[in-house]
């Protein structure tokens, strides 16, 4: 392999996850494919119920995918057993959205951060473990005086730093960040985003960054995938996606963000009609059709559009995009 050749760390191929519900088959994730290079960030954006979190969890096999392939670091992990997955959990891990409910309230900061180290027997000897825990606290910017505090004594930002320290404790290659800053105030959000970015620079982490907040995802990601009802509708380089969105849903999503600008030129708002439809028993048709303004005859008769490359590196799933 040539030295400057890019290494694909994670490849997801036609991943699906269906849930059986009393009303029928719920298509939570429906044929999602992407690749991420080592050291890069893929942002997955979409509204509630679009399947972005399920995708994140299925990659880690925290929920068993219905079909599809997950190739991590050259290994096909789709059929890995629980015990084999357990070993892999030191290489791929997750940061959760809510730092209030994802931490055991009865464990101190020391116990919380050292738990993954003990669990995976990464370091032996309690003194060494303690040393590593304190180092991790330094890395994530959590003052050492909190080492014996409990989560309820800390604010949201500090709790999220514990979550990050726990993820880093196992020296992972890939971290799935599931809305890591959504529960935080803006000034604290900026601190956490800077920290995650710095860590990426320092130790070459690869991120899947799941969020509903488009301004955060743009700031953070190299590539962005937009999801709607379990499927990717558009995927492109971050700058290109924001400069020139092609899918009608992406356009509407971008124009819906309220911009903190007053009195200066502002792009015209495009409101989309209606709300996300139910992901149960979906017909083989474009899923955005009923809310779409450019919908044409071909969308009504046509099948569910496939993701296709319309420009180098820019993929879109829409009948009406040339």
């Amino acid at each position: 392999m040539a030295e400057n050749e890019k290494k694909i760390l994670l490849e997801v191929d036609h991943l699906t996850k269906y849930f059986n519900t009393p009303k029928g088959l719920l298509h939570a994730v429906d044929g999602v494919s992407f690749q991420i290079e080592q050291g890069k960030t893929l942002g997955i954006v979409g509204e509630s119920g679009c399947g972005k979190s399920t995708t994140g969890r299925a990659i880690l096999k925290l929920i068993e995918p219905t079909s599809g392939k997950i190739i991590f670091d050259g290994k096909d992990i789709t059929k890995y057993s629980r015990s084999k997955m357990r070993r892999l959990r030191t290489e791929m891990t997750i940061i959760f959205q809510d730092p209030f409910s994802s931490l055991d309230p009865r464990q101190s900061v020391m116990q919380l951060i050292s738990e993954p180290i003990r669990e995976h027997r990464l370091i032996k000897g309690s003194e060494e473990i303690e040393k590593r825990t304190l180092e991790l606290m330094d890395t994530v910017g959590l003052a050492r005086r909190f080492v014996n505090s409990y989560p309820h004594e800390l604010d949201g930002g500090r709790r999220q730093r514990i979550g990050i320290a726990r993820a880093l404790a196992v020296n992972p290659k890939l971290i799935i960040c599931d809305e890591p800053v959504s529960a935080l105030d803006v000034s604290i959000q900026a601190q956490i985003l800077n920290l995650l970015k710095q860590l990426q620079k320092d130790i070459g982490l690869t991120y899947v960054f799941i969020t509903h907040d488009l301004s955060v995802v743009k700031y953070f990601s190299d590539d962005i995938a937009v999801m709607y009802l379990g499927q990717m509708v558009e995927k492109a380089n971050s700058d290109e996606l924001f400069r020139e969105p092609l899918h009608p849903y992406t356009k509407a999503l971008l124009s819906a963000i309220p911009l903190p600008i007053v009195g200066k030129e502002k792009p015209e708002r495009q409101l989309i009609r209606g709300e996300i439809t139910s992901p149960v028993n979906l017909p083989d048709q474009c899923r955005f059709m009923k809310r779409c303004d450019v919908c044409q005859a071909c969308c009504e008769t046509g099948k569910n559009p496939e993701l296709r490359e319309v420009r180098p590196g820019h993929f879109v799933a829409c009948h009406c995009v040339e």
Partner: peptide
Amino acid sequence: EGLFNSLPNLRERGEELIPIKGL
């Protein structure tokens, strides 16, 4: 000013955010 600086800018990307220090 600190609140504005903490917001990720939708038009320009990649620069480090300037958070308000402390709590």
